[in-house]
């Protein structure tokens, strides 16, 4: 199988400070890759740089489009970058309030990406929005409620619906379950796991929670100080960590 995304020697600096440094990896279709590390380790910088939300200082990101041709993300103009973000990619932010439009209804939030793609049939948009609310376990009768009337967990599920409604091929997720209480987290993780399987999504997910990585990701990268210190199969990394930092991270997990 060939890769969907190829990241090579990617660095992003903030002046003299390193955000992330010399990161390379491949992502295959249908694969979920977790980036773990503590706060400040550069995981979010890496995610945003790969997702073309930040310009890289050096290195390249290549993406294989639906039509089979490769795009060099760094060379894209704004129009093509946005088209890609709209049609083939998705981004789920940690705080759903950053990813949602809070002043319009849940239904409009879900339907927005479809309207951006040119869908102009109101009843059809309603139908799809209702269906997606159901898929993320939100009562479809709340389609006209604003997201501000939703709990944190519901808002995050709404953001997931809003992102996945156009059936993207690649989704970036930045700590989608951080800041939610444990039972809500479990529900969202299960939902993500199911949707990723059903839709055959490829995803890159940033998390500081190793249990999330174990549950969702076949492969994991461990970051420290902006660099990838260890990478491989998630169970290898968690059960047989090689790097001192990974060992520390794994041994710090509370077991129940």
């Amino acid at each position: 199988m060939s890769a969907l995304l190829q990241v090579r020697g990617l660095s992003r600096h903030y002046g003299h400070r390193i955000g992330c440094e010399d990161v390379s990896f491949d992502l295959h279709p249908g694969e979920l890759l977790c980036i773990v590390g503590e706060s400040g380790s550069g995981k979010s910088t890496l995610l945003n740089t790969v997702a073309a939300q930040l310009a890289p200082t050096s290195g390249s990101v290549r993406y294989c489009q639906k039509n089979g041709s490769w795009l060099d993300i760094g060379m894209l103009n704004e129009a093509d970058r946005r088209r890609l973000a709209r049609e083939e990619w998705g981004f789920v932010t940690q705080n759903p309030r950053d990813g949602l439009r809070l002043n319009v209804s849940a239904g409009a939030n879900v339907a927005e990406r479809l309207m951006a793609l040119g869908m102009r049939n109101y009843s059809q948009l309603r139908g799809i929005a209702r269906n997606w609310l159901e898929r993320v376990e939100i009562d479809p009768s709340r389609i006209d409620d604003p997201p501000t009337a939703f709990s944190g967990g519901m808002q995050q599920r709404l953001q997931i619906a809003r992102t996945l409604v156009t059936q993207p091929r690649l989704v970036f997720m930045d700590e989608p379950t951080a800041g939610l209480d444990v039972s809500v987290q479990a529900r969202i993780l299960d939902l993500l796991r199911r949707l990723v399987n059903e839709l055959g999504l490829a995803a890159v997910m940033v998390t500081h929670d190793l249990a999330v990585a174990r549950l969702l990701a076949a492969r994991t990268m461990v970051m420290q100080g902006g660099r990838v210190v260890e990478t491989g199969l998630t169970d290898q990394i968690l059960d047989d960590p090689q790097h001192p930092y990974t060992q520390l991270l794994v041994s710090s997990v509370l077991t129940t």
Binding site: R101, A108, E112, M115
Partner: peptide, 14 residues
């Protein structure tokens, strides 16, 4: 990129 304008019209109908 005008999908956003339809969000407003959608809200009206909703």
């Amino acid at each position: 990129d005008y999908g956003l304008m339809h969000v407003k019209l959608y809200e009206d109908i909703a």
